[in-house]
Simulated assay, not measured.
Amino acid sequence: MPNLPRRRFVQGLAAGGLLLGLPSAIKPVWADAADTTTGSAPVLQGTEFDLVIAETPVNFTGVPRMATTINGSIPAPTLRWREGDTVTIRVTNRLPVDTSIHWHGILLPFEMDGVPGISFKSIPPGETFTYRFKVEQTGTYWYHSHSGMQEQTGMYGAIVIEAAGGETIQADRDYVVQLSDWTDEDPMRVFDKLKMQSDYYNFNQPTAVDFFRDVARDGFKAAFDKRKMWNEMRMSPTDLADISAYTYTYLMNGATTAGNWTGLFRSVRARGCGCV
């Protein structure tokens, strides 16, 4: 088992709702008052960062699994940068396979983009790669692995870039909300299933009852033509997505719906208008 702080280990599991040794009635995952960005991810700020990629035990569904984490956290630490600064990020790989970090939406030199086989060779096991670039923009972005299915197993985090002149909107605190998903299945197995049958996880298929309902409403020819059209396209009218909650558990800031991530806000009455 990787060497990680007990608080981070429990936090990663408790966010999922069920864990051996924890009470069955899980309380909401409150945003930490000491954390100005998210409720579950630590915040790193400055120009020099050390990120360690490793496997970490998690439990989102009641079944223990191994996740791919950065500094033992899901989501990964939120990185706060300032426009105009040059940031240095040392990334150490403690996985048994190659890894990488892609800085999604960030303007930087191609060799710092973090896409294996295109901009660099990836980070081999046991090695450290140093990303260094000047921050040329502002806003909120995210970073994630570009190797295998590591992003699907937990390797993603937020980036918040403050303007060089400081924030124009004043607030006591802010939240970054990250929506993601988790599967207890091997993501490669999920991918294989979808390649073999694109509607593998779609159990809401048209039935004979649906066909005769269409006949009663639109007539036989219209109902038949409609069914024929979908069949020729090899598509289903009930296909809303290639994958579903049958295998996915949906997360907000690393918490399941049972974890109930909660952020508190205090309303402020605007001057002159009497509105809240």
Rank of each mutant, 00 (worst) to 15 (best):
A216D: 13
I89L: 10
P75D: 11
T99R: 02
A216E: 13
D242V: 07
P96E: 13
D113K: 14
L264Y: 10
N59I: 01
P77R: 00
P75E: 10
A15T: 11
T183H: 07
G272R: 02
R132I: 03
T69M: 10
L79S: 02
D239G: 07
D186F: 12
F120V: 01
F211L: 08
D50L: 06
L4E: 04
G259M: 05
S236Y: 06
A208H: 14
T140L: 04
D192F: 11
T47M: 10
R8D: 00
R90E: 14
G165H: 01
F9E: 05
F224V: 08
W230I: 12
P57R: 04
E167Y: 08
Q178G: 06
G139M: 10
E167A: 13
G166N: 10
S236T: 15
T78P: 05
S40H: 01
L179D: 08
T92V: 09
F211T: 01
I161S: 01
F9T: 01
T86N: 07
G139W: 10
L107C: 07
K226W: 09
T138F: 04
K121H: 11
P64H: 03
I53K: 07
A54T: 12
D50M: 06
E185R: 01
I101M: 04
R6G: 04
D50K: 08
T56M: 08
N93S: 08
I26N: 09
D242C: 05
P206G: 15
W81T: 05
E232F: 10
R6K: 12
A34Q: 13
D218E: 09
F265N: 12
A258C: 08
A41Y: 05
V135H: 00
D50T: 09
I169N: 03
A14S: 09
A67D: 07
E232S: 11
K134A: 15
F60H: 07
S40R: 00
S40V: 01
R90K: 15
T78I: 05
T56P: 03
E185H: 03
V115K: 00
W230M: 15
T78M: 09
L51P: 01
W182H: 15
T256I: 10
G117H: 12
D172W: 09
P96I: 14
V58T: 08
M252T: 12
K228P: 05
A15H: 05
R132F: 06
Y143R: 00
